[in-house]
Design a binder for these strands. Structure first.
Lengths: 206, 206
DNA sequence: TCCATAATTGAGAGTACTCTCATTTTTGAA
DNA sequence: TTCAAAAATGAGAGTACTCTCAATTATGGA
């Protein structure tokens, strides 16, 4: 994942390729030192470019951080959308999406670290997750599995639990149990009883 | 709250009084610019002291941050312990503690902002909350209201929800509804059904 | 191949921060 | 009141960072 955007841009214009190098570099740097600690020097060194090139592509630090976050969010969203494309049960979609999102973020550890950081600083990320979640919940409501559409605050609660699950696994190593329990917790927050939540998770994750 | 530790140390030694001034200053600075953004210059300016004095009292930034966080945590813990001293129902204690903690943190907004920041950086804070929570949960288990003692990860989930509630109110203004729903969410995570959680919150908060 | 345009380079100006230390000021016990 | 010890001061050394820009190098269409 360290060269993800670089690889993806391999037959685009030079401008795009360099941009991608810098975005990959920014992700590594942020994963290592956090949004506030990542320096432009570090980003360009990782990218194998010189300091000045950065400003040929981005206005300032803020811009590359925003772009890098959005790029990751988009990639993960696409990945997950494909994963649940043929699942038509809302609860199942919520469980599978949540689990997949966390798994992917943990596996691509730079991405995970960046997401955890971004959730604390950038409200956009939360809104992004919210959009996808809402669609799945609407589906579950049609079936009567969930009775009320959660508001913005409840979505934030769910996002906080997901970020925590990623953080815990980046610190302590991969753990299926953490994923299971996070999915259960999400369903509990959405109003399922503990028993139903547990059954739903057991049914859709292995 | 801006001069809390200063006021509290008013008849201690000069050394203690200056220390308290600096801790109050550190809290304000961190609330304003975050743990990473708060500079020593800013802390000493707020305290009305000169730059060098800081190093007469603390080894480095890290030390004052740790001390300031622990001081706040201790004060809040004492405050809440007193509040629930004569409540012998575990669920009630959990609800009242959670609500009081969030309310206090939001009212003393510098403290709240610092706690939100510290939760993300310092594991200690989570452990601190954990200790108090565990006692209340043990009480609720004796009565059969909760069936399993939550492990470290579940405690972290609860702490994350509490931090989110504080953050939301620091951004958007005080809101009883956020407190209610956070208490409900905490009880749901602890295994209560949505109905029971709602009743418990309604019974103990007004 | 040629060459206008685009991209990259790296030195450095400007800024901000942490921490040290010789000096000055304050404190409080005798 | 006196004065040794304690505390506070602020200039500045050392470091690190952001962003600019004139100069250099690479690119790709004709």
């Amino acid at each position: 994942m360290r060269h993800y955007f670089q690889d993806k841009s391999v037959n685009l214009s030079k401008r795009e390729r360099t941009r991608s190098l810098l975005i990959d570099g920014a992700i590594s740097a942020i994963a290592e030192h956090g949004l506030e600690g990542a320096s432009i020097k570090e980003i360009t060194t990782i990218a194998g470019l010189s300091n000045g090139t950065f400003y040929n592509h981005f206005e300032d630090r803020e811009e590359v951080f925003r772009l890098a976050t959005m790029s990751i969010a988009q990639e993960l969203a696409d990945d997950i959308a494909e994963m649940v494309a043929d699942v038509d049960d809302g609860i199942a979609r919520i469980v599978i999406s949540t689990n997949t999102f966390i798994e992917r973020a943990v596996s691509a550890s730079d991405w995970g670290a960046m997401i955890v950081d971004a959730v604390h600083y950038l409200g956009d990320v939360r809104q992004d997750v919210a959009t996808h979640l809402r669609a799945d919940i609407a589906l579950a409501m049609k079936r009567g599995d969930i009775s009320e559409m959660p508001d913005r605050f409840q979505i934030h609660q769910i996002v906080a639990l997901i970020a925590l699950a990623i953080e815990a696994q980046l610190d302590g190593g991969k753990s299926k149990s953490i994923n299971f329990r996070t999915c259960e917790a999400v369903l509990r927050l959405l109003g399922l009883s503990p028993t139903k939540a547990q059954r739903a998770v057991a049914a859709h994750l292995t």
